[in-house]
């Protein structure tokens, strides 16, 4: 049968920053072909195809996503594969090679992580599973 793609509505204007992304306007409807856990989703809308940030989309129908409702404080360990400097007050700055605990995986690609006493959002694309449970 035909492939039914999930339809999302765009919550705010998005200006693309690289050639493989596409522009979004608030109120647009887009169909998602692929959902990447790093928060970039592949979209087709009208004649355009390209990557868009999941953070600018909301489901048109009932949310069907498998997103945990609450943080899991017995999270899994990951190692940072790139450094990142926080730009918002709810983010966390980490160097490359630090072991952290992921306590909440969000579909927008900004996972909540814990390092010692500190928690904050960090790009999931800079995280790699450590393999051990510690």
């Amino acid at each position: 049968g035909p492939i039914i793609l999930d339809t999302y509505s765009v919550i705010a204007d998005f200006t693309k920053t690289s050639k493989d992304e596409i522009e979004l306007r608030a109120g647009d409807l887009v169909e998602i072909v692929e959902k990447n856990s790093n928060g970039w989703w592949f979209c087709q809308c009208d004649y355009k195809r390209g990557w868009v940030p999941a953070s600018y989309l909301e489901p048109l129908d009932q949310p069907e996503e498998a997103e945990e409702a609450e943080p899991d404080y017995g999270g899994e360990f990951f190692v940072t594969i790139s450094s990142y400097t926080a730009e918002q007050e709810d983010e966390i700055s980490l160097q490359s090679g630090e072991v952290i605990e992921v306590i909440h995986r969000l579909l927008d690609g900004w996972w909540v992580v814990r390092k010692g006493e500190e928690t904050g959002h960090f790009p999931s694309m800079y995280l790699q599973k450590t393999g051990d449970k510690e």
Binding site: I11, A12, F14, T17, S18, D20, E21, V33, E34, N36, N38, G39, W40, F42, W51, P53, A54, S55, Y56, P71, Y84, Q88, D90, H104, L106, D108, G109, W110, V112, T119, G120, H121, P123, M125, Y126
Partner: peptide
């Protein structure tokens, strides 16, 4: 063909849609 996603982190949600998790 579908290309690889951008290599930079996606933007955070617009402030008014950002949920408090921390």
């Amino acid at each position: 063909t579908m290309k690889n996603p951008p290599q930079n982190p996606p933007p955070r949600p617009p402030a008014e849609f950002r949920r408090k998790h921390v």
